[in-house]
Amino acid sequence: MEMAYKKKQMQKIFIYAVLVLCAIVVIYPFFYMVMNSFKTGPEIQHNPTALPQGLSFAGYTGMFDTLNVPLLFFNTTLVAGILTLLNTFISAMVAYGIVKTDVPGKKILFRIILASMMIPGILLTIPTYMMMYSWDWINTYRVLIFPGSVSAYNIFLVIQFMKQVDDAYLEAARIDGAGEWDIFCKIVLPMCKPVLATVFILAFMGAWNDLFGPLLYIRDKSLWTLQLGLYRFNTSTPGTYLEQIYAAMTFITIPVVIVFLFLQKNFIKAFTGIGLK
């Protein structure tokens, strides 16, 4: 017994050692980014891997001169915020329609929603662009919001969760004379909070990090998002203002990391339940 216990302990220590080592490898690029954001330009160029010799905030202050950071931040927050709220609310609505109402053909609808996840998005890029062009939606906020306002995967996640909500609550409310809309808003939505948090963060992350959308649809500088600003900045001046690029990257990454740390548990759930029926 003693031997077996010792062996188990050794095994545990070994596993932790591997996990810690790999955590260092995984986190190193972030460390590199943050570290360089506090250096001066020449220092980055000559000594990219060394620790900073002193804290320099030149990157952070300079970044505000090069890019209109408050505006980019505002644009990104506005677009990502509205898109996320819409996406979350619509996912809940559609899931409610499929799971809790007598919508005709609900089985077929569910199948189509599932199948639509398989459509490669890229297939639709060019025609969607032409559509947006002819609607005169190029260079608007709405072109960044509406095409991402519904996602089949998020609807699917909420459906799976809503199936577990007991119909008895709904029936009781119906007997009390509550309308479907009230039941949805006041009873089902609060009960679905965990999965809605999951959907929220998935949608937010996608919107905040998206480069392809803004790159396609936004020419007007006053509508740039953070990602597009960073991309344009990085390609327009390769190799110069390095400290500003590192500062901007750190600045862009922080909000997502904060949201992730707060909603971590729900985020992880978005991936762990896959394959379980």
């Binding site: 329609g97 007598d102 929603i113 025609p127 559509m131």
Partner: peptide
């Protein structure tokens, strides 16, 4: 209740037709 059901799924139906089916047909035509 069926009418309510249609109301609840309508955002997805509209999205599906406008942003998936229509562009697909347009791609085909183009």
């Amino acid at each position: 209740r069926q009418k309510w059901g249609i109301f609840f799924i309508s955002p997805w139906v509209i999205f599906f037709l406008v942003f998936q089916i229509y562009p697909f047909l347009l791609a085909f035509k183009n």
